[in-house]
């Protein structure tokens, strides 16, 4: 199994450090939406910016709207990271 470069813990780190959630507030259930976690539109943008800025994954507008849950964010990021050619 290919090791996923972007993990749940990485996303949790973003939510704690950039959005201000406490560790306890980040659920184990990956199908919870960011909206259900109380993130407003700006906070969701901030999460996506973190992916861009810290992981180099820039997210075009049409993809951004499709990232609603924790699982979707993790999967999307890994998909993008793993599809980058290693030279």
């Amino acid at each position: 199994m290919t090791e996923a470069p972007f993990t749940y813990d990485d996303l949790k780190h973003i939510l704690v450090e950039r959005i201000g959630l406490s560790e306890a507030e980040v659920p184990e259930d990956l199908d919870i939406t960011f909206g259900e976690l109380g993130l407003d539109s700006l906070a969701i943008v901030e999460v996506q910016l973190s992916l861009q800025q810290d992981y180099g994954v820039s997210i075009p507008d049409e993809d951004a709207d499709a990232i609603g849950t924790l699982r979707e964010a993790i999967d999307y990021t890994n998909h993008r990271l793993l599809s980058v050619e290693v030279v």
């Binding site: 950039r18 959005i19 201000g20 959630l21 406490s22 109380g38 700006l42 906070a43 901030e46």
Partner: peptide, 8 residues
């Protein structure tokens, strides 16, 4: 205030 609001 909450930590969330602090970040903003």
């Amino acid at each position: 205030i909450s930590r969330r609001l602090m970040m903003q």
